[in-house]
Write a protein that binds this DNA or RNA. Structure first.
Lengths: 343, 343
DNA sequence: AAACCCGTTCAAAGCGCTTTGAGGCTGGCC
DNA sequence: GGCCAGCCTCAAAGCGCTTTGAACGGGTTT
């Protein structure tokens, strides 16, 4: 059933039916009711592509996940982020177009996305410090929101981020306050903006406590479980060992725990661990009242919602000044951190 | 730059330019070269929506993720599955449309997807035993492939699955062979088909070993880390305790490990754990040579690729008989399983 | 030289919708 | 009774592409 058939069936013109359905004031309430009823009964839905062609709006948002050609990993936060964003899209009638793009093809990919016209806006994932995508998208005139930030980009742009520096500073300070003086950092990729900021927060806290960082105790990599295990193992088998570790993700922290327990050490007593926690649905950090890991928690799902909200607003008002928003985090004290052991 | 402009620029008709670009034989090689060159230089890409409208093909695949209204979880396998499928789609020029749909709206959602015409095919996630979606999609005439199976649906349909029964039987038999007689099952949702099959495999192996299952040692739920912890804890604090546990996912197994170690027990000695492993990129089970958990591993990413392949084939040949495919699994012996302790 | 044919190219219709600009009908007023 | 608003409704154009059916021109055949 298409519009033509529906209008013939009703004995009205396509114009009137279309207007009735789309809530235009030119059609009488009586007619509208009749049309709506018929549409419902016939199970009529306008063809998206035809409508898009006519209106010039794709009613779709593109999520471009950069896939490093070497690493080939899909960040586990992705599912929850997308779930958050999806809630907003479906409430607004938008579709979500997902593309995993090898990083070297990225520029061409964005260009084509614009030209082929299959999205009205884009969510930028995994920004780097001086991410060229921001300039490119601005130039293309394609509305976008960045999940995270690109600290070295000076131009204004829409983004939603969490206070990585502050969160990591607070996490680290928690440890220095407990008397820890030998603290390691098991960080995510520092080529990415968030990794860099987290490192900064970590270093600031050390400095504030009058400590100097030990380069052997700072690592950076994809935040897998195995990486947490390996990195913690390496640090714990050196001549001198840290008494506390700051970790950049829950999954990595699970690997750290595995390493710690494999050595027969007790978390929170022999060695303290504080982690960043994205509040993934399958990996909740205990309960609110009783977190397992001491952690800075910030909901990535909420981030997805906020990113989508801002993108929708931006699409509706393309000339509005850029909006930025910080997702709050909450620092929660669990059982994995405790006073520094003597010596 | 659109087709009209490009053809004017070339002094050719739209027909000729379109044909040249799409590789039709009616256009001379010389003209084709000229057109291709101009298109490249002008950075021309046909408008997807216009093309779709004209051809009737959306060039997009829908992934519908059912979101339980109570649970609101996003399965962590999702990212890797989608990455696998995405590889295939982009090689074939298809887009991926992602929708998270509350389970109660599902039927209407599929219907609309068909009518609105924004996808050429669908991937069905999380099938239940007698999943009504299969009949519905067949009735709608929308090509689809199921990730998993719906055991109680007798009609033929395309699916890609892993031998859940066999894998769990083998995993469980590994334990009975080691002398375990008190074995628990920490399973995923048994309302879903895979959960049900895994349970069946588990039970078959017990029966084959002449053992009877203890209902108190069989649980079923969303496969979170916390669930693994809680379930293992419950089983290990009963009057009688299992000496081995079969677990349905790596994440849950991590929770099980936490519970085991919190009690000061040693995995593989005091208690054995065997798990199903989807080979998630952020949660690799050690190395191939040295797996951490004893596990049945099957790549969900590969499953994504195969599902996409079959769906593409089905779209090209809608009348072909249904295709089904089993993703192999590999049983790997790690450090978490060992001989049953005495008593 | 006429007839034919093949290789190229073209104009125009159509995909299903929105939207503009125009027209028809009704009732109220003079 | 005639006229004008004001309310409804309509025909038709247009979104950018593909595809049908026709036409064109140059070479080959008879």
């Amino acid at each position: 059933m298409n519009l033509k058939q529906l209008s013939e069936h009703l004995g009205l013109s396509q114009t009137t039916v279309s207007r009735a359905l789309n809530g235009y004031p030119e059609v009488s309430e009586k007619t509208r009711q009749k049309v709506m009823k018929a549409a419902r009964e016939a199970n009529y839905q306008p063809n998206t592509r035809a409508r898009s062609l006519a209106t010039g709006r794709a009613m779709a948002i593109g999520h471009v996940i950069p896939v490093s050609t070497q690493h080939e990993m899909v960040n586990p936060i992705f599912g929850d982020f997308v779930a958050g964003a999806g809630e907003v899209y479906s409430a607004r009638g938008y579709d979500m177009l997902l593309s995993l793009v090898p990083d070297r093809d990225e520029e061409a990919f964005y260009r084509d996305l614009r030209i082929k016209g299959n999205v009205d806006g884009i969510v930028v994932h995994g920004p780097r410090m001086a991410d060229p995508r921001i300039g490119l998208l601005d130039e293309l005139g394609l509305p976008f929101v960045v999940h995270g930030r690109a600290s070295e980009v000076t131009a204004g742009y829409n983004y939603v981020d969490v206070s990585n520096v502050r969160a990591m500073r607070e996490a680290t300070t928690h440890l220095t306050d407990l008397g820890h003086r030998r603290i390691g950092l098991i960080n995510g990729l520092e080529t990415l903006d968030f990794g860099n900021r987290r490192r900064r927060g970590f270093l600031e806290a050390l400095e504030h406590a009058g400590l100097t960082a030990n380069p052997a105790w700072m690592t950076s990599d994809d935040m897998t479980e195995a990486y947490g295990f390996d990195a913690a193992n390496a640090m714990l088998s050196g001549a001198e060992q840290p008494t506390a570790l700051v970790v950049s993700s829950m999954i990595t922290a699970l690997g750290v725990r595995r390493a710690v327990e494999a050595r027969g050490l007790i978390l929170g007593r022999d060695i303290s661990v504080v982690t960043f926690d994205d509040d993934l649905s399958y990996l909740r950090n205990g309960t609110d009242a009783e977190p397992v890991f001491t952690a800075a928690r910030s909901s990535v799902r909420e981030a997805g919602r906020r990113v989508a909200d801002i993108l929708m607003a931006r699409i509706d008002a393309p000339l509005a000044p850029p909006r930025t928003e910080m997702i709050p985090y909450r620092f929660m004290i669990g059982a994995t951190s405790g006073p520094a052991p003597d010596g």
